[in-house]
Structure formats: structure tokens, C-alpha cells
């Protein structure tokens, strides 16, 4: 199926473009939860995008969900839709009931889950959990999915560069037997989340390019639009190239999640998109001049997210090192076969 023909993607695009206005973004920046917008997303069924119809979901393909993540990035959606979709995806795959409200998910490699009192006990800490302060928490730990919710969770609030909540969570939670289940198959949660950020960043960069281009066409200096100056054209062309590479990389990452080909494709995508994010933000701000760094002009909603997201779930340094170690280990003659395997 061609993603551009997906009705769900098309409808999401319309909804997000219409509803995620500058007013919404400004209020979210001030720390206000955007309940009305969240309800609209819920009405459309987005929180259960990857949940089967038998469980009340809308059963989209992974590629469609990731295309929606890209749209969410385009509009700088100030809500945890990515985390909710993926959290409920884990729950439903483990046969647990999806949450209705916003969800956040924790890669619980550093947590401990042990059998206790006819149930399970979860303990330990997780840093920088998106919307940890108000989302129902899902934890993947030791091949099991724990439907934690909010009980037994202590929050210490924090934010990222874009003022999105990134909260430290301490767990001391007693869970019923029915709230914990094995996750069939293998899921590399860090890679899935990195792939999601790649798509959000690619979307944000598309919008950054649109904003900078529109500004260059409209703003006049020396008696003509900025767009007529070759230096501006060349810089925007470089920005366009970064957007193109990010789109391709983001799709590669989504495919990797869908096909479960694994980590190296996601690693390459996050390395490439993270690098593009810095270049894109810097060119766009240069083109837009002083206006671009004001609260009023919407560029910052996107660039501040790019600067945040490129660090999350492994930045370029993290993933490039992993790729380099893995490929060097095989020796120079295995390098090319490793590249064509993706």
C-alpha cells in the first residue's frame, strides 16, 4: 500500500493542520495541557492506532502510524501521541488492555520487576520520561510489559529545550498479576522510539523548510525579495537536501520497525536525521533573521523540538559509534555487504 493513499494518514493530516494552531502551541509552551486537542485525537482513534479492531483499536499498519508521527512533527504537536500509540501497541501485543488517556512508555532495562504478594513489584528509576507527570505509564522490562498506570510512581518534573515535559520517575509499584504479561517476539524499544523521533524530526524539518522558503519569498531587502539573492537560494537548497535525506532516512527507519530488520537501519537513520536537524535549524534561522528568534514567529516551535529530539534515544554520537563498532568488527571486506544488507 502506498502511504500517501492511506485514509487515516490523510485524515490525521487535516485534523492536525487545522487544530494545532499557534495559540495551542503557545499555551502548551506555558505548560498547559491541551485537553481539547487531545479529545479530538481520541475521537479519531489515534491513541489506539496500532491496536487491533477486536480490542477497540483502528489497526493501522506501522508504516501508517509512523507517517502520522511525521505529521505530528510537522505541526509540532504538543501532546504525547507517539508515546501513546506505541505504549498501547505494546499493551495490546501483550494481550493487555490499552489505556484511554495519554500514555508514556519506559524502556525498563534499568528497572527491576519481581514476583511479590501474588503479583509483581516494580522498582527503580527512569530519567526524562515524556509527559511522565500525567501519562499512564507502560514499562517494558525483561521481555514483559507492565501496565503500571500512575500508582506507585513518584515524579520529579523537568522539561526539554522545547518545554516538553521530560520527567524523572521513581517506581515503587505493586502490580496485579493481570497487569503484567509477556511480550511475544522481540522488541528493541529504544530503536522503535529512535525511529519515531526520526519521523517527527523529518516532519518538523519539512515545515522548517516551508517557513523559511515562504519568508524568503515575502521579505524584501535592497528592493527585492530575499529569495532572489543567490546566497539565500543556495542555502535553502542545502536545507532542502537535508529534508530530502531525512525523509528517506525516516522511511528507512519505519520500514526497519515494520520488518523487524533491526537496529542498524534505525541507527543509520537517527545518525543521519540528527545531523540534518542541526543544519536545517541553523540555515532556517539564518534566512529568517531576527524575526525567526521571536516567540511570535512559529519557527522556534520546530527548531527547539529538533534540538531536543536529536538527543533523545541516542544522538548521532551514540548511534554512529554503535554502527562503527559493529562494522569495524567484521573487517573492511564485510563493510560493503553490511551496507547493502539495509
Amino acid at each position: 500500500m502506498n502511504i500517501s493513499e492511506s485514509l487515516a494518514v490523510e485524515t490525521s493530516e487535516r485534523l492536525l493542520r487545522e487544530q494545532c494552531t499557534d495559540t495551542v502551541l503557545a499555551a502548551a509552551d506555558a505548560g498547559i495541557w491541551q485537553q481539547a486537542l487531545w479529545e479530538q485525537l481520541t475521537e479519531f482513534g489515534l491513541p489506539v492506532a496500532l491496536v487491533g479492531e477486536d480490542q477497540g483499536g483502528i489497526d493501522l499498519r506501522i508504516a501508517e502510524a509512523f507517517a502520522i508521527f511525521r505529521l505530528a512533527g510537522q505541526v509540532a504537536l504538543p501532546l504525547p501521541i507517539v508515546e501513546t500509540v506505541l505504549g498501547n501497541w505494546l499493551l495490546s501485543r501483550a494481550g493487555l488492555e490499552p489505556f484511554e488517556g495519554p500514555v508514556s512508555l519506559v524502556d525498563g532495562t534499568a528497572l527491576s520487576l519481581s514476583a511479590k504478594n501474588d503479583g509483581w513489584h516494580l522498582s527503580g528509576g527512569a530519567p526524562r520520561v515524556p509527559w511522565g507527570r500525567r501519562a499512564d505509564i507502560v514499562v517494558l522490562v525483561g521481555g514483559k510489559v507492565a501496565r503500571v498506570g500512575r500508582k506507585g510512581v513518584t515524579v520529579s518534573e523537568g522539561t526539554n529545550i522545547a518545554d516538553e515535559p521530560r520527567d524523572g520517575l521513581a517506581f515503587d509499584a505493586q502490580l496485579e498479576n493481570a497487569a503484567v504479561a509477556d511480550l511475544p517476539g522481540k522488541t528493541d524499544l529504544m530503536a522503535v522510539l529512535a525511529a519515531a523521533r526520526c519521523n517527527q524530526m523529518a516532519g518538523a524539518m519539512e515545515r522548517v523548510f516551508e517557513l523559511a522558503t515562504a519568508y524568503a519569498l515575502e521579505r524584501e531587502q535592497f528592493g527585492r525579495p530575499l529569495a532572489k539573492f543567490q546566497a539565500i537560494q543556495q542555502n535553502l537548497a542545502v536545507l532542502a537536501e537535508q529534508v530530502a535525506a531525512s525523509n528517506a532516512a525516516a522511511e528507512m527507519a519505519a520500514e526497519a520497525v515494520e520488518g523487524e530488520i533491526g537496529r542498524i537501519a534505525v541507527a543509520a537513520a537517527k545518525t543521519r536525521v540528527g545531523e540534518a536537524a542541526g543544519i536545517a535549524a541553523s540555515i532556517a534561522h539564518q534566512v529568517v533573521g531576527a524575526m525567526g528568534v521571536t516567540e511570535e514567529f512559529s519557527l522556534h516551535h520546530l527548531t527547539r523540538r529538533l534540538w531536543s529530539w536529536r538527543e533523545e534515544y541516542g544522538n548521532e554520537t551514540y548511534w554512529a559509534r554503535e554502527i562503527g563498532q559493529a562494522t569495524a568488527k567484521l573487517g573492511p571486506d564485510a563493510l560493503w555487504p553490511a551496507i547493502t544488507a539495509v
Binding site: E322, T327, I339
Partner: peptide, 10 residues
């Protein structure tokens, strides 16, 4: 070395 090689491969 690893980071440099990994970036090129990406």
C-alpha cells in the same frame, strides 16, 4: 574511529 566510520556508513 568508530564514530567517524559509523557516520560515513550512515
Amino acid at each position: 574511529g568508530a564514530i567517524a566510520l559509523g557516520r560515513i556508513v550512515a
